Simulated assay, not measured.
Amino acid sequence: MSDQRQKVALITGASSGIGYAASIEFAKRGYKVFAAARRLEPMEPLKEYGVIPFKLDVSDLDSVKNAKKFIIDQTGDKYLDILYNNAGQSCTFAALDVSDEYFKQCFEVNVYGPMRLVRELGPLVINAKGAIGFTGSVSGIVPFPLSCTYSATKAAIHQYAATLRIEMLGFDVKVLNFITGGVKTDIEDKRSLPSTSIYNIPEMEYTLRERQQMAARNNPMPAAEYARRVVNDFEGARLGGTLNYYRGKMATFLGTVLWWCPRFFLEYILLRKFKMDVVFAALKVKYAKQKLD
């Protein structure tokens, strides 16, 4: 790869939080940065850093194909050094409550979107002998209550990244998976408990609120600091090197705990932290003399 060619980066989910901060960090380091999201207006200030914002819906194949064409047209070449799959969709619902619409939307953005981008833009990354990154989550390894759908999407993308890494080795393309802890972003799911929920009791209000605001309540890492570390990881990545990078508040701790903590003890801790034990006691009383439909 010629030293004269300006490196090119594409960051999805760049309208706020991690993607927004990463776009600035890559731009400061001399990359030609394409910042992509469904909403253009929040990305307008990125232009001050030389970033090129454009509209992209990762759940739409035509939009992804248009993104590839746009990058080629803007650069005049077929290189992409960094493909950072960061766009994410939260989903804080119990398994018995989440609708088809909600879990399909979550998988479309968190799993199928990155898969589309890798398939369609992968050849450009291969041309550059570049790197592909994914924003994973500690929710993909820790069974947080009310996180069945979101956790499933992150566990899926973790394994996708692990397998993609093997498939890309022959092309000299690096693959990085960022198992992300608390970061100051606006990904919080603010949707309320469905009125028809089996958990629709007063005791559940605390659990839902605590789960939705878990990251915000635990002194999350600033997005700019997270982005600085992630860009360092991209630039320091090597073939056969690290796959999973633990970044964000509590990420390393939680990843380490899972190595030695028995599952029954982990479940006990989670039940107490989110007061699910209180919820279950109330549910047993409520449904003691009736059958569920």
Rank of each mutant, 00 (worst) to 15 (best):
D233S: 02
Y84K: 09
F70Q: 03
A95N: 15
R247K: 14
P262R: 06
P145F: 00
M168V: 11
M1L: 15
R39V: 09
G133H: 00
T256S: 15
G182Q: 00
V58T: 02
D293C: 11
N86Y: 03
K154D: 11
N66D: 13
L208D: 07
M250E: 09
L96M: 15
L266P: 00
F34D: 06
A161S: 05
Q89G: 00
V64S: 07
S63N: 15
A35E: 14
A37D: 14
L117Y: 04
M250A: 10
G76F: 08
S192D: 12
L61R: 12
G88I: 05
D172P: 13
Q74A: 04
Y112D: 08
G113I: 05
P123D: 12
I187P: 04
A282R: 09
I24H: 05
P220W: 02
P145H: 07
A87M: 01
Y287A: 01
Y20L: 08
P202T: 01
P222R: 03
S15I: 11
A21E: 01
A237K: 02
F253M: 12
T252C: 10
R5L: 12
K7M: 05
L258C: 07
F34C: 02
E120W: 06
I11Y: 09
I166L: 05
K65E: 11
V33I: 07
G136P: 12
G241L: 07
G140L: 14
V33R: 11
T135C: 09
A131P: 10
A288H: 00
G248Y: 09
N218I: 03
A288W: 00
Q213I: 03
